[in-house]
């Protein structure tokens, strides 16, 4: 092999080495941030428990009133007002960028409240009621 060709090979090796170093460095620098789901789960549990425990009126809790509404009656204003109140509670409790999904279903699979703002990455918790189920999810 001619001397110039050997020298060119040497140069190429150096350039290839540089490219590998750059790729290695870039792959670590632009690693996507991983969201911590454990805090979301804790928040979702806390939110679910707190909302259901909150009194709407005269010692009647949100949990009691949801059960009443599923059975077809109410003690604290209309069931539509209850849905609005629940929506307000969740919105005021979370940060502006936090999305949620709140679903109340009865024992027959029908949906009483269905608020779904989640697209992906859901951290969900649920609680059984006397005559249904509450599912709350927080998402990124």
């Amino acid at each position: 092999m001619k001397k110039a060709q050997i020298e060119i090979i040497g140069l190429v090796i150096i350039v290839v080495l540089l490219v590998f170093i750059a790729i290695f460095a870039l792959s670590f620098m632009i690693k996507p941030m991983q969201h911590d789901n454990s805090l979301l789960k804790i928040k979702a549990n806390a939110l679910r428990a707190s909302i259901l425990k909150t009194d709407i009126c005269n010692q009647v809790s949100v949990k009691d009133e949801i059960e009443n509404c599923i059975d077809g009656y109410n003690e604290c204003g209309s069931c539509d007002k209850l849905k609005q109140d629940i929506n307000d509670m969740i919105t005021n409790s979370l940060e502006a960028n936090e999305k949620y999904s709140f679903v109340v279903s009865n024992d027959y699979g029908g949906s009483f409240i269905n608020i779904n703002n989640c697209v992906d990455s859901i951290t969900a918790v649920s609680q059984n009621l006397r005559n249904g189920k509450v599912d709350l999810a927080l998402c990124n």
Binding site: I42, K43, A46, K53, T54, Q59, S61, M89, S93
Partner: peptide, 15 residues
Amino acid sequence: IPVSLYYPLSNEYKL
């Protein structure tokens, strides 16, 4: 984090 607040004087829970 959301919490349930208890007011003992009125015996009620708030958010």
